[in-house]
């Protein structure tokens, strides 16, 4: 049975697209046929981060409006042959999305894919609503700051009340917290909320903590999902998160301030 995963946040710029690309790629790497769908109509970004922007001919909106078939619009990843992208349109606006159209495309994708990742736009308007509406699983991307946590809370409320599962009275959407751009130094200085603070406020399970990392910018400039940079802290943290999503128990890493001194390097850390 295909699983529909929405990557959502409420607040903009917290790392939804970065996470959609990384998690989608991670699932494909582990042998699951996966498609990542960009719901951010008008601001397409996913194709850039996935490095397929030069191969977009038809997009999600074309399929919704029967201007192209799904197979014409699906872009195959150049690195993994069980990974696909459905790009958003840059020329249309959010009104081009409608529930019936999205439902039809999702139904069709479910026949062919194990995982359908929906990269939500920011906000709580049409695009964000439709991205979450059909979800089985939600990954709520949150930065360790008060405004982002508030918006995530709001989104969790909508997941619990405005999704198809909620409206039909089915089992609720499975909710996961993904804390991104985590900077242990700034947490230690009290400039950011800690993992514990955020977990306590949102009271949902922690899927992963992705450190603030240069590797993310480098990866997105190169059009390579950061999870493929397995030497980087962010890449490893996303890998762990994907393993947890698939049910593995993996210890959380990158939560503490890096120990850089010579003595610490000689004698190792605490782990």
């Amino acid at each position: 049975m295909a699983q529909i995963i929405v990557v959502t946040s409420g607040k903009g710029g917290v790392g939804k697209t970065t996470s959609s690309a990384a998690i989608g790629t991670g699932l494909a790497l582990r042998g699951h046929k996966t498609v990542i769908v960009d719901f951010d109509v008008g601001l397409r970004n996913l194709d850039l981060i996935m490095g397929c922007e030069r191969r977009v001919v038809y997009d999600f909106i074309n399929v919704i409006h029967n201007e192209a078939t799904l197979s014409q619009a699906l872009i195959k990843d150049k690195r993994l042959d069980n990974l696909y992208v459905l790009a958003a349109s840059q020329t249309r606006d959010k009104e081009a999305l409608n529930k019936e159209g999205v439902a039809r495309v999702i139904e069709e994708l479910k026949k062919d894919f194990e995982y359908i990742i929906c990269d939500s736009p920011a906000g709580i308007e049409t695009g964000a609503h439709l991205a979450m509406y059909f979800a089985d699983i939600a990954i709520v991307v949150t930065n360790p700051e008060v405004s982002s946590v508030r918006d995530s809370d709001r989104i969790l409320g909508l997941l619990a009340s405005k999704s198809q599962r909620a409206e039909k009275g089915e089992e609720p959407i499975k909710e996961h917290l993904l804390l991104t751009r985590y900077n242990p130094e700034r947490v230690a200085r009290g400039e950011m909320l800690s993992v514990d603070d955020v977990e306590e406020i949102l009271s949902i399970g922690l899927l992963g903590v992705i450190p603030e990392s240069q590797a993310v910018l480098k990866a997105s400039n190169q059009g390579v999902p950061v999870i493929l940079d397995d030497q980087s802290d962010a890449g490893q943290a996303y890998s762990d998160a994907v393993d947890r999503l698939l049910g593995k128990e993996v210890k959380h890493r990158f939560l503490e301030v890096q120990k850089k001194g010579l003595l610490q390097r000689l004698f190792g850390g605490r782990e």
């Binding site: 969790l156 619990a160 009271s203």
Partner: peptide
Amino acid sequence: RPVRGGQQIYARGGDLVVLST
């Protein structure tokens, strides 16, 4: 279940018990 920002719960004519945040 948690009651999230933006949600409103009304126990009309009776008591309300919330076991979550």
